[in-house]
Design a binder for these strands. Structure first.
Length: 280
DNA sequence: ATGGCGATGGATCATCGA
């Protein structure tokens, strides 16, 4: 199954691009950010006509997140648990995945604006709450989980076109990178980075100053896999083609492909059982 | 080079994004 994340920068302005991409990439689950519309303005009919169920958590003008899925989406939570927030930045739900369910979340992490802005401590507070909830999601060992979204964090120097120029600025600030790494250390896997070591692979390019044409971008959109999901990791990549279209979002989709079932013969279980299996 | 571009709401620009 294919799970994708995409900050569309207005679902209304990008609806044709989204519908087209659903047809081309045939993802099973899509996590959208920056809908920029109220929940009751969500284009449910168009999405349904494309073959997808959808749940959304929106608001006027800003933010807004959604989950699209070929299968029904159950047990939906709107808003990041444990974080009192009037901004629509988190939605999670459960979708059937092959031989068992998967828990997925769509995240639009605050940008922070600048280090001196009051929005930067808001970003760090959000990250603290995200860290706590990500840990709680891992504690639910009954099903694999995937968190996808616009994290507004470039994790490492290879993820920016000009790391020296961005050093200490929002999106590449040590305080946010430290918190992002703390989440990875809980046991989450950055799907794209697990399969690609090369520098210069980006998911966002500023509209201004010809950044797209110069390929000056940042990798700030991520798919985090719980250990059970990471065990099923088959492929992950960034699809640059939507960014090159007319009237494109400034972000482009990132996707991961997971095996529908656990690989046969994989050495899962306690060490003594693995040793027994190896001994025949 | 703190500009550049694009979307929104409600206006003929201000605000925000990253």
């Amino acid at each position: 199954m294919i799970i994708a994340t995409w900050n569309v920068n207005s679902l209304k302005a990008r609806l044709t691009h989204v519908i087209d991409w659903l047809g081309e990439a045939e993802p099973d689950i899509v996590l959208l950010q920056e809908l920029k519309l109220e929940t009751d303005r969500f284009p449910a009919a168009e999405i349904e006509a494309a073959g997808y169920h959808a749940v959304a958590h929106g608001q006027k003008t800003y933010n807004g997140v959604a989950i699209l899925a070929r299968a029904p989406i159950r047990d939906v939570t709107r808003g990041l648990p444990g974080f009192d927030d009037d901004q629509a930045r988190w939605i999670e739900g459960t979708v059937a995945l092959g031989d068992r369910d998967i828990r997925v979340a769509s995240l639009y992490l605050p940008n922070g604006q600048s280090v001196t802005s009051e929005k930067f401590p808001y970003k760090l507070r959000f990250l603290d709450a995200f860290e706590a909830h990500a840990r709680a999601m891992l504690a639910d060992a009954t099903r694999p989980a995937v968190i996808g979204g616009d994290f507004n964090i470039a994790p490492e120097a290879v993820d920016l076109y000009d790391p020296k120029g961005w050093a200490g600025d929002v999106l590449f600030h040590p305080e946010e990178r430290r918190r992002y790494r703390a989440v990875l250390h809980q046991g989450w896997t950055d799907a794209f980075r697990a399969l690609h070591t090369e520098a210069g692979r980006y998911s966002w390019w500023d509209y201004r100053a010809g950044m797209w044409q110069k390929d000056h971008g940042l990798r700030i959109d991520h798919l985090l896999l719980s250990p059970e999901a990471a065990d099923r990791l088959e492929a992950s990549d960034i699809d640059r083609s939507p960014r090159g279209r007319e009237k494109a979002s400034d972000h482009t989709p990132v996707w991961v492909r997971l095996a529908d079932s656990m690989p046969a013969g994989a050495p899962y279980g306690p060490p003594e059982e693995i040793a027994e299996a190896a001994a025949g």
